[in-house]
């Protein structure tokens, strides 16, 4: 198992030092990160309000997919980016399959804990679609914006 980072459309093994992990339970018991790199691991039923004010202390938030069918962490990632403005790493842990990677990346994930041999199928999945219909946490323009740009260029 390795952590792969997805930045600027490129998927590559993570080169940074491993962050010290703090679970939500440890956070509730008073653990507070001070020096070094820290990651907060949240279960997928955690309300983000509880940790919202402390997000800046963390380099990474780890969100959990207990099974690949359970998409709650997709909403958590979307909220972390759009509502709470979290700009650090959001990492997917658990049953993380290539077929979900595109949605995960769009929802705000930029790191995946996966087997290294799966890297090629993740690369393929992450580049499967060149157009999207919605604005989300990534910087892709939805097709309605591209349509408007095409019209403006033609005018």
């Amino acid at each position: 198992m390795a952590t792969l980072k997805f930045t600027d459309g490129e998927l590559a093994p993570c080169r940074e030092d491993r962050a010290t992990e703090i679970t939500l339970a440890e956070w509730r018991e008073g653990a507070r990160p001070e020096a070094g790199r820290f990651a907060l691991a949240l279960p997928n039923d955690a309300a983000l309000d509880e940790v919202a004010h402390a997000l800046a202390r963390f380099d990474a938030i780890i969100l959990h997919f207990p099974t690949f069918k359970d998409g709650r962490a997709l909403s958590q990632a979307r909220l972390l980016r759009a509502r709470y403005g979290f700009a650090g790493e959001i990492r997917a842990r658990g049953e993380v399959l290539p077929d979900q990677a595109f949605f995960m990346a769009r929802a705000g994930f930029d790191a995946f804990e996966i087997d290294c041999e799966a890297i090629e199928s993740f690369r393929t999945a992450l580049s499967a679609f060149s157009c999207v219909y919605q604005r989300s946490s990534d910087d892709r323009a939805p097709v309605y914006a591209r349509r408007a740009a095409t019209r403006a260029a033609a005018a």
Partner: peptide
């Protein structure tokens, strides 16, 4: 909007 929605496909 609902086609391949990143947040609401699972």
């Amino acid at each position: 909007w609902s086609t391949l929605h990143p947040e609401f496909s699972y």
